[in-house]
Design a protein around this nucleic acid. Structure first.
Lengths: 208, 208
DNA sequence: ACCTGAACACCGTTCAAGT
DNA sequence: ACCTGAACACCGTTCAAGT
């Protein structure tokens, strides 16, 4: 009789997520996840072929609409700009909600089925709006680049992280504008800033 | 008599760069760089406090205008849009020229003085164009997010990397638009795509 | 069938020692 | 002053063995 598997991909992802949220992004290791589950390290390899695959599991879990990931239904939005905004904001919200997972999100989102579904949904919005061929491809990639560039910026950015101390310590006379911008940016909430930037990008795409 | 130091930061950066270009981004290690230089591993710690600092040295070297990094002089461009385009394209070109260094560029650019100078230059262009306060901060960050998001996308993107196989293997009926876009995107050169997207972003910022 | 400890080939970094 | 080997506390992963 085969013994039943004691783990599901979902349980594995949850354990890895717990490690990341407790120890930070660098705290993730096969050994740490195994400890979290009370198993030997090598037992994980029953469920996952490599650390890379475990990371993909985490990303997939976080992006799962059934687990708090971005819902792809934009039914209520009227214009295509509103619909695209909803999708972009939801993707951004996921990264903001799990800052410690963001690095993984940036490096492994392409391996997640939910990320692909999100992309397909965004392309659907653009297609419905009449974009096709190369124009649609460029618009799509511009939005995606902005969304994930913004997530990345937020990781270092004036508010969250490592950039702050650096910029605050700038010799004011060498970088007057950067210093002033850092002060300006500190007054605006990251979500509002993301939305404002997104509006600019979408406006550029909408403009004839 | 103090023995003369046998290394400069520049030589160190060059050795690390050589390792990265030869072995790929993951091949970088203190031991590998020491080998490259024919020294003991620990000798590197005479010049650098940590691996992180060595990575910063590499980024700084790659972004140094005197070493092929992005020139900040936009004298010939006429409109602010043209000037911003020149700066953005040059930053993108550096990442494209050293694809193996791009991950480092993305994660450590904030620690580089040349990156700060580039930012200050871009802010100067926006300031000259009449942008101020919050509006300037948002425009600035939108451009930066797009530029580095695009670099990141190019790392995985339909052309370069790991994304390709994945997208090519997509079940066509589940992701018709993604599949079609991948085909569309394959026909357009990455540099042209970057430029087209950048134009959209800048157009959105310029629009009243 | 499922789980595991020992072992291998790596890391970055501390420390005490060599010249 | 400059350089270094040994050692420590980690990694991911292979393999042969336990139940």
């Amino acid at each position: 009789m085969p013994r039943p598997r004691s783990l599901t991909p979902d349980l594995l992802a949850k354990a890895a997520l717990a490690v990341i949220e407790r120890e930070g992004p660098d705290g993730l290791s096969m050994r740490a996840v195994a400890d979290e589950l009370g198993m030997g390290t090598m037992s994980l390899y029953r469920y996952v072929q490599s650390r890379e695959q475990l990371e993909a599991l985490v990303v997939d879990h976080v992006l799962d609409p059934a687990q708090g990931g971005p819902d792809l239904d934009v039914g209520r939005a009227r214009s295509w700009v509103d619909k695209a905004t909803v999708l972009a904001v939801r993707a951004h919200a996921v990264a903001t909600a799990h800052p410690a997972v963001a690095p993984l999100l940036l490096s492994r989102r392409h391996a997640s089925i939910h990320s692909l579904r999100w992309g397909e949904a965004l392309l659907g919005v653009l297609a419905e709006a009449g974009f096709a061929g190369e124009r649609r491809a460029v618009a799509f990639r511009a939005i995606v680049a902005y969304v994930f560039g913004a997530v990345q910026l937020q990781q270092l950015g004036p508010l969250g992280g490592k950039g702050t101390a650096m910029i605050a310590a700038l010799p004011r006379e060498d970088f007057p504008l950067l210093a002033e911008t850092a002060r300006s940016a500190r007054k605006i909430a990251p979500d509002a800033e993301f939305l404002s930037g997104l509006r600019l990008v979408l406006r550029g795409i909408a403009a004839k």
